[in-house]
Amino acid sequence: MKTAPSAPASTAKIAVRDLSMAYGNFVVMHDLNFEVRDKDIFVIMGGSGCGKSTLLRHLIGLLEPKKGSILYDGEDFTATDPAGRGDFIRRFGVMYQSGALWSSLTLGENIAMPIEESGDIPANTVRDLVSYKLALVGLAGYEDYYPSQISGGMKKRAGIARAMALDPDILFLDEPGAGLDPLSSRRLDDLILRLRDSQGCTIVVVTHELASIFSIANNSVFLDTATRTQGALGNPSELRDHSDNPAVRLFLNRGDTPPSPS
């Protein structure tokens, strides 16, 4: 970090500085540097297996970086002892790739559990909150269904409802559109946009679905498998035509010969 840590960091919701991620001695990605602004929909994109989900797991503290730091609102997350990260984690909402709903609980209980555990909340309030969150994602009335009884798209939406349970500041979505039909995937994109606009949270999305990327993202980072570091940073629609990295243009043009940057 060359600049003074406090001044520039305060403008960004999330700031990633010189982040290197590794499994043992195998370096997945090195020297990542990017910032996510408040109320952005920020997309982490890249080819399959390039480390997108690994980066997400670093951002939410499930994995420890090999080097570098992650700052939330200018406060260093990675330097905080894992036991003392409660204040950070309470502001996160995470939807996992498969939904990761607790399979022994109904959808209602899945959403109620974080709410109940967050304090002494009257049962009526909890019930109303649960049905409100389910209604937000279009699953009104599904309280008593178990995760095994609903489809993949519904699981993802229920996963989002659970991630939104505690009105998070930052919502992390891991491959929301993967494995869904085009219409469900589109509806999910609309949901993400509307949640950002009405709920006012910052959203970080891991995806490689081009249609989604162009319709929701206003900022993005491209992880390049070949160089094992970030290939580009910026609005994906602009990167598609104007990135100076051919790999980025190739990716965003679905492998068609990219026009040279103008």
């Binding site: 797991r57 939410i60 503290g61 499930l62 984690i89 996160f92 995470v94 996992y96 990761a100 709903l101 607790w102 399979s103 559990m113 974080p114 555990e117 659970r162 505690l166």
Partner: peptide, 8 residues
Amino acid sequence: EIDALRTF
């Protein structure tokens, strides 16, 4: 699911 517990 265990990761999901952790992030809450």
